[in-house]
Design a protein around this nucleic acid. Structure first.
Length: 647
RNA sequence: CGGGGUGUAGCGCAGUUUGGUAGCGCGUCUCGUUCGGGACGAGAAGGUCGGAGGUUCAAAUCCUCUCACCCCGACCA
């Protein structure tokens, strides 16, 4: 491993001849002449094995880094403002951006890290088209499910086509033809490609785009367990994802997640930790357990329907107050002292065992989680259609747990433990419009059904909140943390293979559905998340591994031949050590250059100026270091640079 | 798709209430003086005022329609 190996993410490069005299055909009109352009790539004359890796050298004056003193008004998120100001991106349309040279270098480095880790996990890279025939999405029903998020177009023959938002269908269609024997499994394939999703609301620059770069991987198995099974690859991917984000220099948390509309059975999200993240995750500091709000389990809570009624049941006129907050303040109670009863119905097409309604009861300050309700009762539920529910006699907005007993066709009551407290006098709906009751007691006012497990289940039925008991460590409570989702892995199961008829003969000569996993990383989002996570008021602060260049050589006097000579020789030396170097050779005032240096955020800044040169050195400063930097003798620059980058 | 907001020079904005032929700062170009944290002076270029209709002698400004972008929500890599 070369000394800079820890920088990671650099592709080993083939040796290329350094430009000889005369390779620079176009004389530069101004600025300095570094002689031959040392970093001009020249095609190797013949194949040669990789012998060493050399960094690249670029000149600010010869590339395009349009920094802005003021951020465009439309940018409000830090990463959006900084990527725009520092000359990394330009907006072309809502959620559509140009990736300028600096951004592209970073993206390339992230992609390369992803590649290495995917290959290491046994996956093979390929590339599928962005253009997808609509009939493929029809096969799985996702033409419908995706709805308007799918970019749709017609070709000249009028054939319905889409721009791929993800490629489960495409790869499944390919493999159901190409995989002819179980012996070809397991298999993991991936691509790094532009995806298209017509987001209802693109926002925050690169964080939510309609066109973005994503790595999507798919794995195919005969079994879930055992060698070659889904779990094996899933675990390998899990590790690979941890490696990717660690190597990128990101601070991240892995959380358990709902698998969402993409379907499947298990899933983890990889979240970059940052205050401005759009997702809230909950974490148990004692056990390390983390999950998103929807998925997060809650530790055991004591409950009982037993208990004496503390107050008589009283009906109160509460005109036009269906919302908990307004009623609570009207009644003079806390939201936490109310019972919220949400009317649910079995999802279309599920076998509910004859149950027509499901009433979920949570405390007034909590939110019902339909996924948890599903887990409690064994079938999927959705929010009841309001008209239908009213017709069935539910006073929507004023429903109480008692409505379950009165409901035609029977209703199942799912009560969250925090709501199943018998010794409290609750405020809740009166089951008639514009009225609530106070003094509600489970045992007195609902009575016998509370003991009947066929009608009443007590189970976790709500979203977790900060302060809830940890599901993994007794005595520990959940804390909240913000994050940005940059990776997501799913166990898909046979959802797509079944829908698309992808099955193979197994060893026992039985037709067997292929089991799938899918694994995504938002590459462009990862770059933005990194900026979101790592910046200060002056600009971006790149981790070395994905910085567009490792070092910035700032020439105080670009016109000075001696300065130019030092810059050239230093740049060459650093490149030889494997560093990518950007030379700020612009004829600009020092202040401008320093401001731009901080904005662009390269990890190491080397200032070549009179004062340090007189002392036999240059100034070296890490992006996070305060001040002007430290004077370092020329012959130690390389070493100090590498040390700074690997720190 | 609901709610809010903004479109005037590359960027940031004023001008719109009360119609009178477009302005400021930054940036850009030229010359000079400068040169270690976004210099100074002098000069210059750059705008179908988002678009289309309409009212008017006259529209950035008033009316109608439309498009784009941003923010909050619903939704999400």
């Amino acid at each position: 491993m070369d000394p800079a190996g820890a920088l990671a993410g650099r592709r080993p490069r083939r040796t290329r001849p350094r430009g000889g005299p005369g390779t620079d055909r176009y004389p530069r009109s101004r600025g300095l002449d570094f002689g031959p352009m040392a970093s001009t790539p020249t095609a190797p004359t013949s194949w040669s094995p990789r012998t060493r890796s050399r960094g690249e050298i670029a000149r600010w004056s010869r590339t395009m880094i349009p920094t802005l003193r003021e951020a465009p008004a439309e940018a409000t998120t830090p990463s959006h403002r900084l990527l725009l100001r520092a000359g990394y991106i330009r907006q072309v349309a809502a959620g559509v951006y140009d990736y300028l040279p600096l951004a592209w270098r970073s993206l390339t480095k992230i992609a390369q890290i992803v590649r290495e880790e995917m290959n290491g996990a046994g996956a093979s890279e390929m590339l599928m088209p962005a253009l997808v025939a609509m009939e493929l999405f029809e096969e799985t029903g996702r033409a419908q499910d995706y709805g308007d998020d799918l970019f749709r177009l017609k070709d000249r023959h009028g054939r319905p086509t889409a721009l791929g938002p993800t490629h489960e269908e495409v790869i499944t269609a390919f493999l159901r033809d190409a995989v002819t024997s179980y012996r070809q499994l397991p298999l993991a394939l991936y691509q790094i490609q532009t995806k298209f999703r017509d987001e209802p609301r693109p926002r925050a620059g690169l964080l939510r785009c309609r066109e973005f770069i994503m790595k999507d991987a798919y794995s195919f198995h005969l079994n879930v367990e055992g060698p070659g099974g889904l779990n094996e690859t899933y675990d390998a991917m899990y590790k690979a994802y941890c490696n990717v984000f660690s190597r990128c220099g990101l601070d991240f948390t892995v959380v358990e997640a709902e698998s969402g509309p993409i379907g499947g059975s298990a899933s983890h999200e990889f979240m970059v930790n940052c205050e401005t993240g759009e997702d809230t995750i909950l974490r148990c500091p004692a056990s390390g357990y983390a999950a998103n709000v929807e998925k997060c389990e809650i530790g055991a809570r004591a409950w009982s329907f037993e208990g004496a009624a503390a107050a008589p049941l009283a009906k109160v006129h509460t005109p036009g107050m269906p919302g908990i907050e307004t009623v609570a303040s009207f009644l003079g109670v806390e939201a936490a002292g109310m019972l919220k009863t949400i009317v649910l119905e079995p999802a279309p097409g599920v076998d509910s065992g004859g149950v027509a309604w499901v009433l979920a009861v949570v405390r007034g300050d909590h939110e019902v989680n339909t996924g948890k309700v599903r887990d409690a009762i064994g079938f999927k539920v959705v929010l009841a259609d309001e008209k239908k529910a009213r017709a069935a006699g539910f006073a929507i907005g004023y429903v109480s747990p008692r409505a379950a007993a009165a409901a035609p066709g029977g209703a199942l009551l799912v009560v969250d433990p925090d709501a199943a407290q018998g010794d409290l006098a609750w405020a809740t709906g009166a089951d008639e419009p514009n009225h609530h009751v106070t003094g509600f007691s489970w045992s007195r006012d609902l009575g016998a059904p509370t003991a009947d497990a066929r009608y009443v289940k007590v189970a976790d039925a709500r979203n977790a909140v900060v302060g809830d008991p940890s599901p993994r460590a007794k005595g520990s409570t959940l804390v909240a943390q913000r994050g940005l989702e940059t990776g997501h892995i799913f166990k898909l199961g046979t959802k797509y293979s079944d829908a698309m008829g992808f099955a193979v003969m197994d060893e026992g000569q039985q037709k067997s559905s292929v089991i799938m996993g899918c694994y995504g990383i938002g590459v462009s989002r990862t770059m933005a998340a990194c900026v979101e996570m790592s910046h200060d008021e002056n600009g971006i602060i790149w981790p070395a591994a994905i910085a567009p260049y490792h070092a910035l050589l700032v020439l105080m006097k670009p016109a000075d031949a001696e300065h130019a000579r030092v810059a050239e020789s230093l740049a060459g030396e650093l490149a030889d050590a494997g560093l990518d170097v950007l030379i700020d050779d612009r004829d600009e005032r020092p202040g401008v250059k320093f401001k731009d240096a901080d904005l662009v955020g390269l990890p190491v800044r080397i200032t070549i100026g009179e004062k340090a040169l007189a002392a036999g050195g240059v100034e070296l400063k890490g992006r996070r270091d305060p001040g002007k930097g430290e004077v370092v003798p020329l012959d130690q620059v390389r070493e100090r640079c590498l040390a700074a980058l690997t720190a």
